[in-house]
Amino acid sequence: MTLGATEASPPDGGLPSEHIAETAEAKQIEGRSLGQIAWARLKKDKVALISATLILLIIAIAVLAPLIVKISGFPPDQPNFKDSNGNDLLDTQLGGIPAGGLFGSGMSSEHWLGVEPQNGRDVFARLVYGARASLLVALGGTVVAVVLGTVVGMVAGYFRGWVDALLSRVMDILLSFPTLLFILALTPVIADRAQSTFGIPDNNTLRMGVLIFVLGFFGWAYLARIVRGQTLSIREREFIDAARSLGAGPGYVIFRQILPNLIPTLLVYATLIIPTYITAEAALSFLGVGVKEPTASWGRMISDASNWYEGNPLYLFFPGAMLFITVLAFNLLGDSVRDALDPRAGRS
């Protein structure tokens, strides 16, 4: 028997720990996929459970808004000037601020969170409907951004060459745009365009569609960069070579082989941008380019409240609190998802 000479041993060691049948013991601990591990961690994470419950609750409020408002009794855009006893809700002498009620906001057993000054709209109903605008725009924008970013990133990373060069330049330019300003400037322009060219009335369906499109369109480039980088490295892995040598086309490889490996990244990115889009919707509506009157949006409510809050900060408090709770819940869940998917977390 000769001793293993240095020249004869492979550079990264002679031990054969790779090609192997799994033992039962190993299977118990190591045989779980990343998804299973992440799920198990999430289920143990109290913060994740609480924030997920909160989010489901807010989604339920948004979906069931018409039902809830039926129970509370006042539609969100209906002006109210008298209560059921025929008393004035608003004090015309004082510029239309609510007459009485708890904290002078018109709160009563009929109007649970009071009424707005001047037009007497029910604050509770507007708050409930505001959840719709917020979630619809944020989730819609996220879907657009994630789909665009994933497809463009994968295409750039998979085909490389001039396709990659072209798409990467587009990403560079998009990332150099002053995004908020541009969204601000573009939203009314697109709404006008759609109205004049396609005859779509400038109502709130259109406005929300435009918001979703604009937020998504300016949000994909960053994700595309990440996806491109990951695709570049995934496509060098052996299972891709194997699939291609068996005759798999680019479409199959991209969507069946690369995409599943990107899912953790996409999940983390999506949970990161949902709260920023909720904030963005509120900001745009606040600035007057988002959701229009009379549709309720938390951003609009804050904007309206800015005229009255010095007298009664409750008008600011309700939409502000909803916005804060929603964003916080998504941020908390996002953190938990990211930690759960991070193979290093909790191990080092």
Partner: peptide, 27 residues
């Protein structure tokens, strides 16, 4: 371990590997 060292004199046989994988240090 010794069986898994490649040898110049070893003829054309396949390298032997130790079956199974290293034990889980938790279990």
């Amino acid at each position: 371990l010794l069986g898994s060292i490649p040898r110049i004199t070893g003829g054309g046989d396949r390298l032997k590997s130790i079956k199974g994988s290293p034990p889980s240090l938790i279990n």
